[in-house]
């Protein structure tokens, strides 16, 4: 009985991390129609930068996390401004350039941080667990769940309640018409790309105490982000939230119940959704 509860907590935690990763991915994909295959690399880069800040420079965890998120945001902004901007609509060139960059990032990380996995200490104050009735909950995992919820709420306020959010939604729905009414869609692109990159980088360092940081983390996370977005529907915040938690649960329970078919079980709901509802659970139209 306790195992099931533990699995549930792990699932929700992992879902929270996936949400940080996939919310930006979904927005970038929905607004810019760019298959950003560097998103896994951004997660990994954030994790490595944050790990260096915390473990080598002994900065407080949250400052390290902020630096990691900012670094990755700047990196994302540079990619968008210098490369992706020229390639609007050229989907093959976008695939080539994003994959090329992810190769470079992976090799760069291998060069700087070597191939040994780095484990990041849980931030002090969040070590240990919380006792509730007669059950024991790890504090850091609860913190991740809370942070993911807060960021989800902030994103919702940003997208649904502010002028910028209204412009982004207009850009997602009809970029040409948004341009016609005077919205600078190209600036929105940069903002959204930086935001998505920052979220991915932040997710990387948040996940580091649980997942640790190792070469290949990028290729482990990218497919998960894709599955979440396919499941939830592109460009939809609610979609990536629900998709993240569904995938979080399937991932953890799948590993525990059918270890031989864990990945098969992970990708199966995606296939079912595709067959029944190709635009995803909360998507508006087929991409």
């Amino acid at each position: 009985m306790n195992l099931w509860l533990l699995l549930a907590i792990n699932s929700i935690t992992f879902g929270g991390l996936l949400f940080l990763l996939s919310a930006g991915f979904s927005l970038i994909f929905g607004l810019m129609r760019i298959p950003n295959l560097t998103h896994g690399s951004m997660f990994m880069l954030g994790a490595y930068v944050g790990a260096s800040m915390v473990m080598t420079f002994h900065l407080p965890f949250w400052i390290g996390a902020a630096i990691a998120a900012l670094t990755v945001a700047v990196f994302g902004g540079l990619i968008e401004r210098l490369l992706l901007r020229r390639l609007a609509g050229a989907e093959q060139a976008q695939v080539l350039v994003t994959l090329g960059i992810s190769l470079i990032v992976a090799d760069f990380c291998l060069m700087v941080w070597t191939g040994d996995p780095i484990s990041v200490a849980t931030p002090p104050g969040l070590v240990g667990g919380v006792r509730f009735v007669d059950l024991f909950f790890p504090t850091y995992r609860i913190a991740i769940i809370l942070i993911a919820c807060v960021i989800g709420a902030l994103l919702w306020v940003l997208l649904d309640r502010t002028r910028l959010g209204a412009m982004i939604r207009a850009g997602v729905d009809d970029p040409q018409m948004a341009r016609v009414v005077g919205i600078r869609v190209s600036r929105l692109f940069t903002i959204v790309f930086c935001l998505g990159a920052a979220l991915a980088g932040f997710g990387g360092i948040m996940g580091a105490p649980i997942l640790s940081v190792y070469p290949g983390l990028d290729n482990d996370m990218l497919p998960l982000a894709l599955v979440v977005v396919i499941l939830g529907g592109t460009g939809s915040l609610l979609g990536s939230l629900v998709g993240s938690f569904v995938i979080g649960f399937i991932y953890n329970y799948g590993q525990a119940l059918f270890p031989e078919l864990a990945y098969f079980v992970l990708f199966l709901p995606m296939v079912v959704v595709l067959v029944l509802r190709p635009q995803g659970l909360f998507g508006k139209q087929a991409p």
Binding site: L87, L96, V97, G100
Partner: peptide
């Protein structure tokens, strides 16, 4: 660092 070289070649081709 041949992986980096390969990535750089791809980016250069795109540009």
């Amino acid at each position: 660092r041949w992986n980096m070289l390969l990535g750089a070649i791809f980016v250069a081709i795109v540009i």
